[in-house]
Simulated scan of single mutants.
Amino acid sequence: MKLGPVGVYLPISFTHTASADAQREGARRLEAAGYPTVWTNEVVGGKDALVQLAILLGATETLRFGTGIANIWAREPQVLHAAAAQLAAAHPDRFVLGIGAGHPAQAAALGRDYGNPVETMRGYLTRMDAQTWPPAPEAAYPRILGANGPKMLALAAELTDGAYPANLPPAFTAETRALLGPDKLLVVGLSVVDGGAEAAREKIAGSLGLGWYGKALRRLGFALDDHDALAEAIVAHGSPAAIAAKAAEHLAAGADHVLLMPPTTDDFLADVAALERLAPAFG
């Protein structure tokens, strides 16, 4: 599947869901703007990413879609495979499944035990292909694993078609490519902020509370109190050309596809318009 070098998230709101008509319009406009691939998130118990993509795949012609990510707590593994295979059968070469374990709170909200995330994910991936009756459609689709830590990335290399790390510098992309090898799909999530360096520093500050995140950055040689260096290395900001240049750094480091994760407001179509204005920088 040719995802193209750069794709975007469909604008996300955590306060309301855009209507199906607005989402169809937004997807068509992003397709017309030249983006080859659009990604969607999932809210456990609030929004089903695969149902959303069924609507959007049918509303567009050539646009490819990915889940970033489909959360394992939202459905049983055989159900996820069946749904993904149905989408792939209906829209060949237009769908990639990104899977992730999410956060302990998401499992707890459903009365489930998060456990060891790597072993939980291993079991989930193994059960995805368990026999069901009737069987799932025989339709191929890429599976990539949302992964930022070395153990989860190793699992991605072992059991899936690739990995989707996010919000880390190009040096991490290079490490991930070396771990995955040359033939796996590497999708990299790149945060984009409106404004300049100050907005980028604020974005970094909001992420440093995650323990694994700080550990990864220290291992790469960053000082966690140096927000200026972190912002320059990790967050795309400034002009469209500067944002495109940051995406190019990840591509040069081994990414196959860079997923732009821009800020969003509660005006879905206004956020789509912002992505349209950015598109020429990637032409």
Rank of each mutant, 00 (worst) to 15 (best):
V43N: 12
A154H: 07
K215L: 14
A157H: 11
D161T: 03
A18N: 04
M128Y: 04
G211E: 15
E198G: 11
E158G: 10
L3Q: 07
W133D: 15
S207Q: 04
P5W: 03
A273R: 12
E249S: 04
K47G: 01
Y9D: 09
F268M: 02
A59M: 11
E249G: 01
K215H: 15
L278E: 11
E175G: 01
H81L: 11
A273S: 11
G46E: 12
A49Y: 00
L87R: 04
D129A: 15
D266Q: 13
G146Y: 11
G162A: 13
E61G: 03
A200D: 05
Y141K: 05
W133A: 12
P117I: 12
G66L: 05
L180C: 09
P150L: 07
F282N: 01
K215F: 11
L57A: 10
A139P: 08
A236Q: 02
V96E: 15
N148C: 14
A101D: 06
Y9F: 15
I144P: 04
Q131S: 14
Q78P: 00
A200P: 10
L10F: 06
L155E: 10
D228V: 06
A70K: 09
G66F: 05
H103K: 13
R122M: 09
Y9C: 06
A107M: 02
A244M: 07
A33R: 09
A157R: 15
A223P: 00
T60P: 14
A156Y: 08
E138M: 08
V44P: 07
F95D: 12
V187L: 13
P169E: 03
N148K: 09
F222K: 11
H81Y: 08
I204H: 06
T173R: 00
D225I: 08
A22M: 01
Q86W: 02
Y124V: 10
G195E: 08
P104C: 09
N41R: 09
V187W: 07
V43K: 03
A154G: 12
A279G: 01
G46I: 08
I204V: 15
P77V: 07
Y114F: 15
V118I: 15
A197C: 04
P11F: 06
E119K: 14
R94L: 12
G162Q: 12
F172K: 14
D93I: 01
G195S: 07
G115H: 06
A157L: 08
G34L: 02
L57D: 06
L110P: 05
W212T: 03
A255G: 08
K47H: 04
I234H: 06
D113M: 05
E249I: 01
G123W: 12
H257L: 04
Y9M: 15
V187G: 06
P134A: 13
Q23V: 00
L217S: 00
A88G: 03
P165G: 08
F172G: 00
L269K: 05
P117E: 12
A32E: 10
E138L: 11
R112G: 02
E276L: 05
L224G: 03
T60Q: 13
T60C: 15
D161K: 01
K47Y: 00
E249M: 02
V96K: 11
E61M: 03
A147F: 09
F65W: 13
G58I: 14
A248C: 01
G111S: 04
I55C: 02
E198M: 10
E31D: 06
F222E: 10
